[in-house]
Design a protein around this nucleic acid. Structure first.
Lengths: 315, 315
DNA sequence: CTGTTAGCGCATTCAT
DNA sequence: ATGAATGCGCTAACAG
């Protein structure tokens, strides 16, 4: 843009040395109140802001973080990222965005690029097949989303709790034949954990489980929902909003006796299309904020690598 | 990450001077083929990549661009961004993402941040009320999406063509009472242009227009669609996929005589939910690519500020 | 408390 | 064709 001022200019304009300006800039101690104020005044007056590249070169942080989402159009990840961004902006971090498309190879490529770029940290939305080994170099500057791994900071959803809450509610409503539409167990969180929570609840309450685990896509919900519906079924629990939307479409086209749907995920889209569906909010928004805060804490003050679980809540 | 090598190291390792390495790095002429190859070998062998901050400080580009979307969860913008990203990566640009939430104030804040950040360029998704004056400083390094403005590079959709194609098709199918569900005319492109194209077609073919322009949201489509439906109506044209989804929900809940729906936008969501709807693809994907290419051309070779319009096509 | 000095990694003269 | 020297804007070590 315009030819910007440097600390040298500020120093000259306020009649002090460069290093004093630098000290003021970094809130270092050892500057008299008077000079500090004077320098700050000059900086404000001229709208001065230090060159990021120069700072970066001096070993300081570049104040850039990367966010690697699986897909730009993931409903849940969008909600998380939307709360993440303001947190990052506020602390002066610029977020560069990348899309993994559920490909380990793409994640690897992106990380390679990032390693050449003096990145402060990475927030990575996990998925099935992600290779923990390749994340090792990033151990201290990474926050894993929606997945946890030994030795890494992470923000997870309470998969088990979310399913339990929904099952409990359905059970209280009198449902005794609750089917389950989910995701293959190769997916640890959305797949395995949620399915196990379902099975566990069934066991405890002596219900007969009836599940199918086709995948993550709407179409898969649509195509496979029929398999878990029989005459007795009165309720259907879906592992995700996306599956619930697919299932709903099928049910609209193939009417049957009333069926109470329930799903994990509190996306605006599902709320609009099917407000009658019982949903639990896995806390996507809160997760985004927590992840941002955790990452900043890690990279600025070497905070411990916490494994955070966001509590689920009926919505 | 690791303590990276510098051109000094490469110079030492290949037995040449720093400046020679620099020359090789920038593909400058005046280096003998032999030394060039030798230096390149050493660089490859050690996986050398120059410090971006150092280059940036030397007045070179930082190779960062900003993408300001209106909303992270906009279906159409997602499609555009998804094609934009690979183009940018390929050229070594890192995209930092920001969300305007349709707020001029937020755009201004983001641009302020960016002006302190030695950004190469900005891709801005336009919206109603965007203030061209505040974009002036960015004239040469900005590409406006979905909106055009005097003196700025832009990538627009063919609003007029998209509507015309759909109307033509509906007309050919025999429809003579085609209603329109759109966006207020304060929105120049999605609002005004599409509505005018609708009116224009009606005039030319002596149809009686019947339109309502509630807004962009699904709920608005749902709430207002009834107003444009009467006994004679056989087709409904929606200005966007989002409106079409809202309208469809209403129609499912309030059955009537068959109504052919049509809409502008070729999003996967609509295709899944309502494949029966006639849609035209405004070319979101192609638009993303064009925008990335245009921006790169501008910032690397001061290419002219083209105003590109993506042709619409039946999908 | 404050100014001076010396680099960070690179591109760019200017010599050779 | 190539190496040595200079400085980008900043922080850090060292003097006063």
């Amino acid at each position: 843009m315009q030819n910007r001022l440097t600390i040298k200019d500020i120093a000259r304009l306020s009649g002090v040395g460069k290093s004093t300006v630098s000290r003021v800039l970094n809130n270092e101690s050892g500057v008299s109140e008077r000079t500090r104020e004077r320098v700050e005044a000059v900086m404000r007056q001229h709208g001065f802001s230090p060159s990021r590249s120069a700072r970066a070169m001096r070993g300081q942080s570049d104040k850039v973080v990367a966010i690697i989402v699986t897909r730009l159009d993931s409903l849940s990840e969008n909600l998380a990222v939307q709360t993440m961004l303001p947190c990052l902006y506020e602390q002066g971090y610029d977020p560069i965005m990348m899309e993994s498309q559920f490909s380990t190879k793409l994640v690897q490529e992106h990380l390679d690029v990032l390693s050449h770029r003096n990145i402060d940290g990475v927030i990575l939305f996990g998925f099935t097949g992600i290779d923990e080994a390749m994340l090792t170099p990033w151990r201290d500057t990474l926050v894993l989303m929606a997945r946890d791994a030994e030795g890494f900071a992470s923000v997870c959803y309470d998969d088990e709790g979310a399913i339990r809450i929904l099952m409990q509610r359905l059970f209280e409503q009198g449902h005794r034949h609750i089917s389950y539409l989910g995701v293959p167990e190769s997916d640890i969180t959305t797949g395995l954990r949620r399915h196990e929570a379902y099975l566990s609840f069934c066991r405890q309450h002596e219900l007969t489980p009836n599940a199918v685990l086709p995948g993550l896509a709407m179409k898969q919900g649509y195509d496979h929902v029929a398999k878990v519906l029989n005459e007795e079924t009165t309720a259907l629990l879906c592992a995700t909003d996306t599956l619930a939307i697919g299932a709903s479409k099928y049910l609209q086209q193939h009417p049957r006796t009333p069926l109470q749907l329930a799903s994990v995920g509190n996306t605006p889209l599902l709320k609009f299309l099917h407000p009658e569906i019982l949903t639990v909010d896995p806390g996507y928004a809160q997760a985004g904020k927590q992840a941002a805060l955790q990452l900043i804490a890690q990279v600025t003050q070497h905070a411990e690598l916490r494994q955070i679980t966001i509590p689920a809540a009926l919505s």
